[in-house]
Write a protein that binds this DNA or RNA. Structure first.
Lengths: 181, 181
DNA sequence: TATTTATAGAACAAACTGTTCAATATCAAA
DNA sequence: TTTGATATTGAACAGTTTGTTCTATAAATA
């Protein structure tokens, strides 16, 4: 990708993230974004069809490479971390360290926007690690209900942790998560 | 309340609900609402400050009386139902029967809007019925984490049920919910 | 260097928002 | 039924926001 394009994209994302930390997604205007990003109006629309697509692209940028094991770039990909922590402990650690600003975004006013997207990735993770949970599953429950329940519980644990301002150590949160299911 | 006001309010809510079933909240305009509700623009703004307040009022209309035990009107208040079903089974039954259109709204494109509001009420219910769940709670977990977990699991069960298009009977869903926690 | 591609920035129509006002219709109470 | 209060209408309005189009300029690429 052209360096100019990369710079523009970066600037827009940065401005957008800044605004998301200040106000509601609905109340953010393209005018504000381009003013802070310091790019032309036409440039914005050359990159993003609408504000909604900007959000979608940002989510992709933030989460997709985290969850896809095929990525060549090891930066931020949880599968390339050393140590033998569970993937879930890993995730909690990354969030606490605020890698890629994910922690901040997940704690912002607009966190539902990101949590929803985030949960999809988690679901994939749960499916990959399903064996670890299989012995806990009550027999009555359908498998897809169970998968849903685990990923939702992860997100819910995360939400609770964020409300507590990430005070607890990731290890304890992982314990809470595992105990709750 | 003046009969005229009641009619106007009703018409606006109805139009709004109709539109919510068709498209995204963000893409619904006041112009569309008043056209379908067949009321004047000034009238709309005499009733609701903005579109967001309309949503908030609708949620209040739908859920508040369901969860407040002090209401004089027994219509739709789950505490006034006969029989000795658990409150949770009761709720699932009401949703399946689509009382007050709640079932449809919770299944619409914009269900997150309502589910979020709904969960607040559920949380209150869980606190009231906490004794029933206390023996299931792992000792390690803080009480507010546990309350959060139960209400989130209820909402999550409901979401899953909606995805399955409410095929399962309420009794089975209640079982799933109870087993999952 | 020459060519391709991205950006700036201004100008634009179209749509939407929220307010105002005077005329009209409906209500509730005497 | 009459009266006074109140709600609704419909149009007009300024102020925003959106998404597009255009030309001139700047930066990347080969």
């Amino acid at each position: 990708m052209d360096r100019r394009q990369r710079k523009t994209r970066e600037a827009i994302f940065k401005a957008f993230i800044f605004l998301l930390s200040k106000k509601n997604f609905n109340n953010i205007t393209v005018g504000e974004i381009i003013e802070i990003a310091d790019v032309g109006r036409a440039t914005f629309y050359a990159h993003f069809e609408t504000k909604d697509f900007l959000l979608k692209d940002l989510c992709g940028e933030l989460f997709d490479h985290i969850f896809s094991p095929e990525t060549g770039n090891s930066n931020g990909n949880i599968f390339h971390c050393e140590g033998q922590d569970s993937v879930f402990l890993h995730l909690f650690k990354h969030i606490k360290k605020n890698d890629n600003n994910i922690g901040k975004l997940l704690a912002s006013k607009n966190n539902e926007l990101f949590l929803e997207y985030f949960q999809r990735g988690i679901k994939g993770l749960v499916i990959k690690n399903l064996a670890d949970f299989q012995h806990k599953k009550p027999e009555l429950l359908p498998e897809n209900f169970w998968i849903n329940h685990i990923s939702a519980s992860f997100i819910n644990t995360l939400k609770w942790w964020i409300e507590q301002e990430l005070q607890q150590p990731p290890e304890l949160i992982t314990e809470y998560f595992l105990q709750s299911i």
